[in-house]
Design a binder for these strands. Structure first.
Length: 610
RNA sequence: GGGCUCGUGGCUUAGCCUGGAUAUAGCGUCGGGCUUCUAACCCGAAUGCCGGGGGUUCGAAUCCUCCCGGGCCCGCCA
């Protein structure tokens, strides 16, 4: 509804500016949110230099030519120095609430079109997800939900490295140290992987000390065996391949369990090996050779990307003729581009260089490159996390600790509720707290994980928003119990019914109106809340276009804030006037719908009570 | 060493792309509010040379430049 209001504002302003003698054509970029008004335009600044007048003078000249059509969502337009401020009309409020009640869970959906393949998480199957990985998962998942809400057709993929060197290490490791089947499968894989890496390091260290004496570097026999495994798997050796697959599947099933716990889902899990065995990797190597930009460095095939600002050659095939992640990734992206209009990848900052090279290589081949959402690292106070070295905090540990803390909280507040409900609320609150805490910070900020702050979920975080939803539910529940409204909450207040087409009809040919229709919503807390509700779609689309999930988190918090203030100051069930009471119940219902939609976009459970 | 990125009250953080009205919010601190729809709530107060210098501009947290500090990357790993 805010979108409609704003475009009407711009239309009126455009007419007024032309009438005042300024030749302009205003679009969305000429208005913005403002703390001083419901919308504002800075167009006077732009016109000032052209017409050699002060911005304030231009602003007042435009405003004196304003004529607001009857029935408009715009109630008033004023100049404030150089700014031109727009305010909603009284009818805006009832129309907004009505629209929400009509559209329910579809309220706020955008009209964007196009197929997007969004890739996120894609962590190596060598262990459980850690607190760094889930920043990727949560940013990716939330972004996916935002894009879907904005109207895009989104397919979410997890790209599984199932044949790379690290998986050869996993396979070697699990052969030597069989994974403990009593443990969660991804953790069991990690334990073997960590031991194997320790073995490799130990031999390397020993070799280095021998090198000091003899000057000849001995080959690390484990690396030799791992190289052998890679050659076997690439040649399609059945036994080796089935071992790789077995361990990868173990890790992935554990990872999926963690993702499920966090409300993160993928539509497809795509295996790297697909692009090796269907021959596309070799086809790409051939195509790259034809560009004339490749050469051999020793036995390895390398690609010259100096035209794109990359100084070093990009290796696309090892000297032993096995393939590399980079090359398989090029194949993957070409495959994705063939079945989508846009590709978006969520990557950690460590992938910045390689993904830049990937885009350059795709460009060399004349293929579309993905859009990148890069997030900075989550580290530990003692340094970077590393699965290989076993230095990480698993997502499972974090989630279980937070859920357990949430349980204590619920137990204290609602000692009488059933054990089952308490556990369910704790899970929703705990997961929500983790998701919100991660998504609220913009991705380019690097962070240091700290148990104290992780467990001390902020007051105005997910539980705050969930609480606002639960409060709305509580009022509606009571309203039904008291027989004020029917079970299905239908037709509880009869809002004036003016369709949008009637609005635009009147806007063309009517004179300036007094726009004096009164609104049933007279309290400031009501109108502030409704204005926030009306912004849902505008905010969602802004976040979708900018690929900024964290801005949505801010909006959701502000929305809850507005509702909590309304709740505190405006009586609903206790309101004496029956008509006003029904209107407020409608507003509570509308708030519940919009907060619920916001929580859904954030992947956080909406709770009827907590 | 080179490239990328971040630096905003005690702590965490929005705004920066696209310069403009008193710089956003939370935590913490201090003070107030439950016989009224769940206090996981609400209200109020204090706290900022927006890392530092220089520049562009009528106007800079925002653009340019240099410097300082943190993070990431610079593998025939992914």
């Amino acid at each position: 509804m805010y979108n409609s209001f704003n475009s009407q504002f711009l239309e009126i302003l455009n007419d007024a500016a032309n009438k005042a003698g300024f030749s302009v054509s205003l679009d969305e970029s000429n208005s913005e949110f403002s703390e001083h008004a419901d919308t504002t335009s800075k167009i006077a600044f732009e016109l000032a230099s052209i017409y050699k007048k002060s911005p304030a003078q231009i602003s007042s000249e435009i405003v004196s030519n304003i004529s607001i059509p009857k029935g408009s969502l715009v109630g008033e337009i004023k100049s404030a120095g150089p700014y031109i401020n727009g305010y909603v009309s009284n009818s805006f409020f009832e129309k907004t609430v009505k629209k929400i009640l009509d559209e329910k869970e579809n309220y706020g959906s955008g009209t964007h079109t196009g197929k997007i393949i969004l890739e996120h998480t894609s962590a190596n199957p060598n262990g459980p997800l850690h607190v760094g990985h889930i920043r990727n998962s949560i940013i990716g998942d939330t972004l996916g939900r935002i894009l879907k809400k904005a109207g895009f057709d989104v397919e979410i993929q997890y790209y599984i490295n199932d044949i790379g060197r690290q998986i050869a290490v996993v396979t070697w490791a699990c052969d030597k140290y069989p994974p403990d089947l009593n443990k969660k499968s991804d953790l069991a894989i990690a334990e073997a992987y960590i031991k194997a890496n320790a073995d490799i390091r130990k031999i390397n260290d020993e070799n280095e000390s021998l090198l000091n004496e003899s000057g000849v570097l001995r080959e690390n026999y484990i690396n030799v065996e791992i190289d052998e495994l890679m050659k076997l798997v690439e040649s399609g050796d059945k036994d080796t391949l089935s071992k790789f697959t077995k361990y990868v599947d173990m890790a992935i099933s554990g990872i999926k369990e963690t993702l499920l716990l966090m409300n993160v889902s993928h539509d497809k899990f795509v295996r790297e090996s697909k692009f090796l065995f269907d021959g596309s990797v070799w086809a790409i190597i051939d195509s790259l050779k034809k560009t004339g930009l490749t050469q051999y460095d020793k036995e390895a095939l390398v690609l010259d990307l100096s035209d794109y600002g990359f100084e070093k050659m990009l290796v696309i095939q090892r000297s032993n003729k096995t393939s590399l992640y980079t090359t398989r990734d090029i194949a993957y992206h070409i495959w994705k581009s063939e079945q989508s209009d846009r590709m978006i990848n969520v990557f950690g900052a460590d992938h910045k260089l390689i993904s830049g090279q990937l885009c350059a290589a795709l460009n060399v081949l004349g293929k579309p490159a993905p859009e990148l959402v890069i997030f900075e690292f989550v580290s530990l106070s003692e340094g970077s996390m590393s699965t290989r070295r076993g230095k990480f905090i698993s997502a499972d540990d974090l989630l279980h600790e937070v859920i357990s803390k949430a349980y204590d909280e619920v137990n204290e507040r609602r000692p009488d509720t059933s054990e089952e409900l308490k556990r369910s609320i704790a899970k929703s609150v705990g997961v929500g707290a983790v998701r919100y805490d991660i998504i609220r910070v913009s991705p380019e900020k690097s962070t240091v994980f700290d148990w104290n702050s992780a467990l001390d979920f902020e007051k105005q975080g997910a539980p705050y928003i969930q609480y606002a939803y639960a409060r709305a539910s509580g009022i509606l529940q009571k309203a039904i119990e008291q027989n004020i409204v029917s079970e299905n909450l239908c037709e509880i207040y009869n809002f004036c019914d003016i369709s949008d087409s009637e609005i635009s009809k009147t806007s063309k040919n009517s004179e300036t109106s007094e726009t004096s229709e009164m609104s049933i919503f007279k309290e400031k807390y009501e109108s502030d809340l409704i204005k926030k509700l009306s912004q849902f779609q505008t905010i969602t689309e802004m976040c979708a276009i900018d690929l900024k999930a964290h801005s949505f988190a801010t909006y959701a918090r502000e929305l809850a804030d507005s509702f909590n203030q309304f709740y505190r100051f405006v009586p609903v069930l206790n309101e004496e006037n029956e008509e006003v009471r029904l209107a407020r119940i409608s507003l509570v219902n509308a708030s519940k719908i919009v907060i619920g939609n916001a929580l859904d976009v954030l992947g956080i459970d909406a709770l009827e009570s907590m």
